[in-house]
Design a protein around this nucleic acid. Structure first.
Lengths: 71, 71
DNA sequence: TCGAACTTGGGTAATTAGGGAC
DNA sequence: GATGTCCTAATTACCCAAGTTC
């Protein structure tokens, strides 16, 4: 691995996009970034951007499928 | 340019919304999730989110059995 | 350069989680 | 066995004005 240049494949998501993925408020995503629960990149203007890859991994980890329904 | 992210798993519902749909207490929904009877996604903060698709399926099943058929 | 949509920051309500007992 | 209600702590949601993005 050691891909030091995260680009050309790693799409960046806005707080609003990440928020809709988790069904939370964009402000909540901001808190996650501030708390270090999710990596974030800042634009020169101070806005946050998130790596889609990381977000998807996070979603997968936090997803609990009902193994199967016993009826 | 508002980039829209493809909702990978469909929309997500909050415990309160699911509770309203089933006409039960949110706590009950939590128990269902804890018992693995319904899949759930957790936010990094620990709150649960439910896939609308799955909820509707369960809802449909219960509706089907409303007439109380032979088991 | 203007404009519409979005994000930031803070402060304050509303939900949720978790345990435990009836 | 399953559900609703009690409690406290934590997380999340909505309010605003100002700055950033494209």
């Amino acid at each position: 691995m050691t891909a030091t240049v995260p680009q050309s494949g790693g799409r960046l998501l806005t707080p609003g996009e990440v928020a809709s993925l988790f069904r939370v408020d964009p402000k909540t995503v901001t808190r996650w970034a501030a708390a270090g629960r999710i990596g974030s990149i800042r634009t020169p203007g101070g806005h946050r951007r998130f790596r889609e890859e990381e977000v998807n991994e996070l979603l997968a980890k936090l997803t609990t499928e009902a193994t199967d329904l016993v009826e």
